[in-house]
Design a protein around this nucleic acid. Structure first.
Length: 612
RNA sequence: GCGCCCGUAGCUCAGCCGGAUAGAGCGUUCGCCUCCGGAGCGAAAGGCCACAGGUUCGAAUCCUGUCGGGCGCACCA
């Protein structure tokens, strides 16, 4: 059955036919507090001009011609608005019992996030990328898409080389006392300092390591760091489908293949004179207006490819313009899901899997990469292939703003940095202190503290728009009250507690008498019924904050309902102490609220403990 | 210089493909456990929605301009 808003839209469309109005765009909205009705439409305003009539009069005529859909008790004219009153019993019952999962979209989305250099521990700037990408993947899946999450491993870059070289330069031996990526990160920093006195030797050593990396020789060294980093991501509840190693991308000729495609494009040329003589350049002026210099160098005149050309090759592969990587399993993740990896020793379809071929491609990369990302996307449009054009339309750069630390830009050199591991540990510690205080008899305190602490962290990264700068401050990031994950988790636990008590009493919602419910319950049901709509728009806009805001709204509404008092100041919304029939109906509503809160949190990758 | 993003309560932010009195949290003040979990609830105070024009029956929301702030614009990676 279509949701209530769609039904109302259809009913209005029918009614408008009697007024000889077609194709009007009908808006259905929730009625603000204090006005009569539950859903309303300002449609009469829109028609006032073309019908040359007073909107209030039009509203009356529409209502006269209107046949209310099931679940709507009556329509009322409120000035120029048409407001609908739902039939409490049937509305709440249908909201609670209907299946809210969204239909499959038959569309494969390739989503890249994380892509942290494998040479030191990840910091809170990366945290935002990881959490944002992970939440988007979850939301897209809920919206019915098939999602393949890729994590790009830049194992041939200078940073990886410096860290690996630092081990031999300092003859350092890992003793297991700290997390491996932290240990290596320290050597990396130390090496940067040593450059001041021993630049030549270091430069030579690093360069040698870079060459070995390109040949894929030191892959195990990189994998050591990577596994250590992955441990942190797993702790955040983040998992991947595929690791794509840059050395594999390079060695499988993606660069050559990408350039082969581009060289056929009329926008790509190799000038024989002028300042670009001998280089391969791409003219993007038609797609990126306002550039001072519309020519992008893909291959330098000395024959070396620019980094962006590598990225273009990778992007082409994501879109399925060519094949050429082989894969093997790399790890079993905490949930039991296998993590695959590109691998020279693997096969093209490891376990029968087909990677890439995304009909939609999403790159989660910070806003400072907007320019190169636009170039990468534009290259798809210039590829001249139908798939490329299609992929151009369906490529998105999810550009998020940076994270600053107490107002300062992060900088490894200046020591202004904060690792994910440190933040997780501190968040969990603070959460544990509160849990111990509030609920000392709780069984799995450590697990719950972790869920609450990590939840608070993730929520803080997700609750506002991606294009907003986040200034990381401990008190805000780890706040356990107010607009936070623990607030929502608490609302959830509170619902669980009622459900537990009900179960102990052997109550079942089969005996629900829906007609005994009132307007307070209708408000809650309205909110519950909104989730699919929220998921759809959050997926469309790649905007997890919409889910976060929704979760807060629902938790607030539920807390408010829970504490509601009649005019004598007595609680009038109790569940278990309500009369039979009403009691079971409210119980069913609470179950639905609990479920909806848990679903919302899970879309953000946040756990919903039953007790806390 | 050009391009992108931001400007809403003291602070941090929702609301933005136009609709009904602009909403939260933090902070401040005052109430609420004889009641299923007080990590909660209720209330007060706090807004020329940066500014100026325009479009519209209607603008925080759309358009133009101005002013503030951030970021980006290499034959680097």
């Amino acid at each position: 059955m279509p949701d209530i808003k769609t039904q109302l839209k259809d009913a209005l469309t029918d009614a408008l036919k009697t007024l000889k109005v077609e194709n009007a765009e009908i808006i259905i909205q929730e009625v603000p507090d204090g006005k009569p009705g539950d859903y309303g439409s300002p449609i009469a305003f829109v028609l006032a001009k073309s019908l040359r009539k007073n909107p209030a009069l039009i509203a009356q005529e529409i209502v006269a011609a209107l046949k209310n859909p099931a679940g709507i008790a009556r329509a009322e004219v409120v000035g120029p608005y048409i407001n609908f009153h739902v039939d409490t019993a049937s509305f709440v019952q249908s909201v609670i019992t209907s299946d809210t999962s969204l239909p499959a979209q038959n569309k494969k989305v390739v989503l890249e996030h994380t892509s942290v250099n494998p040479n030191k521990e990840a910091h809170v700037g990366h945290l935002r990328n990881i959490v944002l990408g992970d939440a988007c993947a979850r939301i897209l899946r809920a919206a019915g898409h098939e999602v393949e999450v890729q994590n790009y491993i830049d194992d041939t870059g200078r940073q990886a080389a410096e860290s690996i070289y630092a081990m031999s330069y300092f003859a350092a031996e890992y003793d297991g006392r700290q997390k491996y990526d932290h240990w290596l990160g320290e050597l990396y920093v130390k090496l940067s300092e040593a450059k001041e006195t021993d630049a030549e030797k270091i430069e030579q050593g690093v360069s040698e390591v870079m060459h070995r990396l390109e040949r894929g020789e030191l892959r195990n060294n990189v994998a050591d760091v990577l596994r250590s980093q992955l441990d942190s991501y797993y702790e955040l509840g983040v998992e991947y489908d595929l690791l794509v190693w840059e050395s594999d991308v390079v060695n499988s000729g993606f660069l050559r293949r990408g350039l082969d495609i581009l060289e056929k494009s009329p926008y790509v040329s190799r000038p024989t004179e002028g300042k670009y003589a001998g280089a391969l350049i791409m003219d993007v002026s038609e797609f990126i207006p306002g550039l001072e210099e519309p020519n992008i160098v893909l291959v330098r005149s000395d024959g070396n490819a620019m980094y962006v050309a590598k990225d273009i090759g990778y992007q082409f592969w994501k879109a399925g313009l060519f094949e050429g990587l082989s894969f093997a399993s790399f790890d079993t993740q905490p949930s039991g899901k296998v993590l695959y990896s590109s691998s020279p020793a693997g096969s093209e379809h490891s376990n029968g899997k087909t990677f890439a071929h995304g009909q939609e491609i999403i790159n989660v990369i910070d806003v400072r990469q907007s320019h190169p990302q636009t170039i990468v996307r534009t290259a798809l449009a210039l590829s001249g292939t139908p798939e490329g054009k299609e992929a151009f339309e369906n490529s998105h750069h999810l550009a998020y703003e940076v994270v600053t630390l107490e107002g300062q830009a992060m900088s490894g050199r200046k020591g202004i940095t904060l690792s994910i591991d440190e933040v997780i540990a501190e968040a969990t510690r603070r959460a544990k202190a509160i849990v111990e205080e509030k609920n000392p008899t709780l069984q799995e305190i450590d697990e719950v503290a972790h869920q609450v602490g990590v939840g608070a962290l993730r929520f803080g990264m997700l609750k506002s728009e991606a294009k907003r700068i986040i200034d990381f401050r401990w008190e805000q990031a780890l706040s356990l009250q107010g607009d936070s994950a623990p607030y929502v988790q608490y609302a959830h636990a509170r619902a669980c507690s009622i459900l537990r008590a009900a179960q102990a009493e052997g109550l079942s919602d089969a005996a629900a008498d829906w007609a005994k419910l009132g307007p307070l319950e209708v408000k809650l049901a309205q909110l519950i019924s909104k989730l699919p709509e929220v998921i759809t728009t959050a997926a469309r806009d790649l905007a997890p904050h919409q889910i976060a805001q929704y979760a807060l709204d629902l938790a607030t509404a539920w807390n408010s309902y829970y504490n509601h008092k009649d005019k004598y100041g007595r609680p009038d919304t109790q569940v278990l102490k309500a009369e039979p029939g009403l009691r079971e109906a409210r119980l069913a509503l609470v179950k639905s609220i609990k479920q909806t809160l848990a679903t919302s949190l899970s879309l953000l990758g946040i756990a919903a403990p039953e007790e806390m």
